[in-house]
């Protein structure tokens, strides 16, 4: 996200990949396990306008630190040393711009392999680089994404080239979009001064919890106790934590207040944004006795407004 803010990116919806891409690179991403049908629906075997034969019309490369289960679906596997992505992308950008560094190996990869890869990208009808948590959650973090987007821009001088993140949670893209249109920022927002301020590192969840700043927490459809670093998640046990979730989780275990809600996409309809920002309406297949989560949130909002206006009245009375 920060990388997008910094420089933008060449992107497209996944149907473009299906219809036109003849070179697919998965970098630090293991779709076979984390996005099992991505390969068949969009990127690998999917048939499209310029890819009538599907898999046969594409060259698939996997770049990762280990031989993941995705490798067996690829034509080429390039093993990279952990934490060297930024360096490798920098060298690939050099190669793309006509500068060959004086070295044999970069990040555990033979230089010639990178030269060949860049050449393949330049010649592609449409090349697509999908990158995953292996890039965004390791050394370098958003700088890695920035390097990838810059590489995508460099490639656009030669060929149609897209750089697309493999997002995890089914509607994490929706949460970024909604926050962006209502606050201007996709995450890490603070309303303490009465308007939205953005500062990752300060207002981001892990940093806030590590500094033990929040005095009450509301967790909506998330599993911080399971997903966040232990030291950060620990603080949630020490403050009143309110959890809205359809199902029992490790986080509901430590909650002071649990508010049951319908399960979006299972027991209630709703909109979610796919990783390429296409919104789709989800269906309901089960019945649940609880309301949809926006309903208790609305009740809480209205109740707080009422409490505040009553307090104002009392204060006003005292002042008089």
């Amino acid at each position: 996200m920060v990388a997008l803010q910094l420089g933008g990116a060449p992107a497209a919806t996944l149907g473009e990949v299906k219809n036109r891409a003849d070179l697919i690179i998965f970098w630090g991403s293991n779709p076979a396990e984390s996005h099992p049908r991505h390969f068949t629906r969009y990127s690998g075997t999917a048939k499209g306008r310029m890819n009538p034969n599907g898999r046969k019309d594409r060259h698939v490369v996997v770049v990762d630190i280990r031989k993941t289960p995705s490798v067996k679906y690829s034509d080429e596997f390039i093993q990279i040393k952990p934490g060297n992505d930024y360096e490798v992308f920098t060298v690939m950008r050099m190669i793309a711009n006509g500068h060959i560094p004086d070295t044999d190996m970069v990040g555990g990869i033979p230089l010639q392999t990178l030269i060949d890869l860049v050449e393949r990208c330049k010649k592609a009808r449409m090349g697509v680089l999908f990158f995953g948590q292996g890039i965004t959650e390791t050394k370098g973090k958003h700088q890695n994404s920035t390097a990838i987007y810059q590489f995508g821009k460099d490639m656009t001088k030669h060929s149609k080239f897209l750089t697309l993140p493999m997002r995890g949670h089914y509607n994490v893209v929706g949460s970024g979009n909604v926050m962006c249109w209502q606050t201007g920022y996709p995450f890490a927002v603070n309303f303490g001064k009465g308007y939205p301020r953005f500062n990752p590192g300060e207002f981001s969840v892990v940093d806030l919890l590590l500094r033990r700043e929040p005095d009450v927490a509301v967790i909506v459809a998330a599993e911080p106790i399971d997903h966040l670093p232990y030291a950060a998640a620990k603080h949630l046990e020490n403050i009143p934590t309110i959890v809205l979730d359809p199902r029992k989780t490790l986080t509901t275990k430590i909650a002071k207040v649990i508010i049951p809600v319908k399960h979006a996409g299972v027991s209630v309809e709703g909109t979610a944004y796919r990783m390429d920002h296409i919104p789709i309406k989800m269906q309901a297949v089960l019945e649940s006795p609880w309301p949809k989560d926006d309903i208790p949130l609305s009740t809480i909002i209205n109740r707080i407004k009422k409490i505040r206006s009553e307090e104002k009245k009392t204060d006003g009375g005292k002042a008089a």
């Binding site: 509607n171 909604v178 209502q182 909506v220 809205l244 209630v268 309809e269 949809k292 926006d294």
Partner: peptide, 19 residues
């Protein structure tokens, strides 16, 4: 200094209400 966290595994209506 409350914290609201999550949002990634629910629908847009709930996300709007969180903001």
């Amino acid at each position: 200094n409350p914290l609201i966290y999550g949002l990634a595994a629910t629908d847009v209506d709930a996300q709007k209400k969180c903001v």
